[in-house]
Computed example of a mutant assay.
Amino acid sequence: MNNIIATTAQLLTTDAVITLYEIDAKNYGQGVLRFHANSNEVLNFNGYNYTPFPIKSEGFEYNGKGSLPTPTLTVPAQDLAFMSVLIGSNNLEGCDVRRIRTFEKHLDSGSDPDPSATFPVDHFYIDRRSAQTSVSITFELASKLDQQGKQIPNRQCIKNTCTHSYRYWNAETQEFSYENVTCPYAGDEYFDREGNKIIDPAEDTCSKDLVDGCRKRFGNNPLPFRGFPGLQRY
């Protein structure tokens, strides 16, 4: 959990929690669909617009008994635009789903906008359309680990190299792009591949190293390093 979120969550009074949904339908030519059900207004977070949509979710919580959660998403069946997407994309089967939660003040229009301030992001994929009535459609989600024939661990363990995907500079917009980026760094200090501080944001490149990459960007805060510095040979 982001340290800002962790600190805020422990306060006696906190801001409203905003839940955002992303469905990655790029494999079907539909792009990334972004929704929320918090209000009737378009919300903006991390530079993206999230359309108001009466989407409901259940079952994201882990039960602590070892079994993976199998959440569901329920959407209205009368929405013609969404129905046309379903028809043209095999009911969105196999599409990645991300549930992002943050405090209202961290939205782009909030009092303290911060795209890195989120609760742990829930990452699933649409397994199947499990129910449909004249009113609603329900999708069953599955964890990325819950795939037949997969073995754990499936991730390659590398000692000194971070496997996060880092932001990149968009020359057309003259801004950083965070599309499909996993590294939470969104600061305004820039470094080259050797960890030297630079001025030009277009040259900002992460060394993927714990000290020259991660530590210089996050300082004494908890590091999101995706390597395994304690890994030893046996």
Rank of each mutant, 00 (worst) to 15 (best):
M1N: 05
M1E: 11
M1W: 04
N3S: 12
I5Y: 05
A6W: 02
T7H: 02
T7Q: 13
T13E: 14
V17H: 07
T19E: 15
I23E: 08
D24K: 03
Y28Q: 07
G29L: 12
R34M: 01
F35R: 06
H36P: 02
S39L: 08
S39Y: 00
E41N: 14
F45Y: 12
F45D: 05
G47T: 08
F53K: 08
F53R: 11
P54I: 07
I55G: 03
E58L: 03
E58S: 12
G59K: 04
E61N: 10
E61S: 02
Y62V: 06
G66Q: 08
G66E: 01
L68V: 08
T70A: 11
P71L: 09
L73Y: 10
L80C: 00
A81H: 12
F82N: 04
M83V: 07
S84P: 03
L86R: 02
S89G: 09
S89C: 13
S89R: 08
N91T: 02
N91L: 11
L92Y: 09
E93T: 15
G94I: 02
V97Q: 03
R99V: 15
R101F: 01
T102A: 05
F103K: 06
L107N: 04
L107I: 09
S109V: 06
P113V: 10
D114V: 03
T118Q: 09
D122Y: 03
F124P: 05
D127Y: 15
R129E: 13
R129M: 15
R129T: 13
V135I: 12
V135Q: 14
V135W: 04
S136A: 14
I137D: 02
T138I: 04
F139I: 06
A142S: 15
A142I: 00
K144F: 14
L145K: 13
D146M: 11
K150P: 08
K159L: 10
N160I: 00
T161R: 10
T163N: 06
T163A: 06
S165C: 01
Y166F: 15
R167N: 01
N170E: 07
N170G: 01
A171Y: 10
A171S: 13
A171K: 11
E172W: 01
T173E: 13
T173Q: 08
Q174M: 10
S177G: 14
E179Y: 06
E179W: 06
C183Q: 04
P184Y: 06
A186H: 13
A186V: 15
G187A: 07
F191A: 03
F191Q: 05
F191E: 07
F191Y: 15
D192Q: 09
E194Y: 12
K197I: 10
K197T: 11
P201Y: 05
A202W: 02
S207Q: 01
S207A: 13
D209N: 15
D209F: 00
D209G: 00
L210K: 03
L210D: 00
V211Q: 09
D212L: 09
D212F: 01
C214T: 05
C214N: 11
R217I: 09
F218M: 10
G219L: 08
N220R: 05
P222F: 04
P222I: 13
L223S: 11
P224E: 07
P224R: 08
F225H: 04
F225D: 00
F225A: 11
G227S: 01
P229D: 02
G230E: 07
G230L: 12
Q232K: 12
Q232S: 14
